[in-house]
Simulated assay, not measured.
Amino acid sequence: MNLVSRIVVGIIVGIVLALIAPEALSGITILGTLFVGALKAVAPILVFVLVINALASHVSGKTTNMKMVLVLYAIGTFLAGFVGVVISFIFPTELTLKTGAQEIAPPSGVIEVLESLLFNIVTNPVSAIMNANYLGILAWAVLLGIALKASNDSTKTMLANISDAVTNIVQWIISLAPIGIMGIMFDIISTTGLSALQEYGRLIIILVVAMFFVALVVNPLIVLLVARRNPYPLVLTSLKESGITAFFTRSSAANIPVNMALAEKLKLNKDTYAVSIPLGATINMAGAAVTISVLTMATAHTLGIEVDILTAVILMALAAVSAAGASGVPGGSLLLIPLACGLLGISDDIAMQVVAIGFIIGVVQDSCETALNSSSDIVFTAAAEYAKERAK
Rank of each mutant, 00 (worst) to 15 (best):
I181C: 03
A132G: 08
V218M: 05
F212A: 03
Y134N: 02
A147C: 09
I121D: 04
M130A: 15
V223A: 07
A128V: 03
P231G: 01
D153I: 13
S175Y: 15
Q171W: 14
S190G: 04
I174Y: 09
A141E: 03
A210K: 00
G180H: 02
A132R: 11
L221P: 06
G193D: 04
G183N: 04
L135Y: 07
M185S: 06
A128I: 02
E199I: 07
L203K: 01
F213D: 00
I146R: 12
E199Q: 11
V214A: 01
I129C: 06
A160G: 12
D164K: 13
L221G: 11
V208H: 02
M185H: 06
R229D: 03
S127N: 13
I173C: 06
N133R: 08
F186I: 04
L159K: 03
A139H: 08
A177C: 04
S154E: 14
S154F: 13
G183M: 05
T157R: 14
S195N: 13
Q171P: 06
M185N: 06
L135Q: 07
I146E: 13
N124W: 10
P231R: 03
I184R: 02
T192K: 15
L207V: 02
L203E: 01
A227S: 08
A141K: 02
R229M: 09
S195P: 05
I181L: 08
M130S: 15
I162S: 06
D153A: 15
Y134I: 02
K149M: 11
M158F: 15
A132H: 10
T123Y: 10
I137K: 05
D187N: 15
N124G: 03
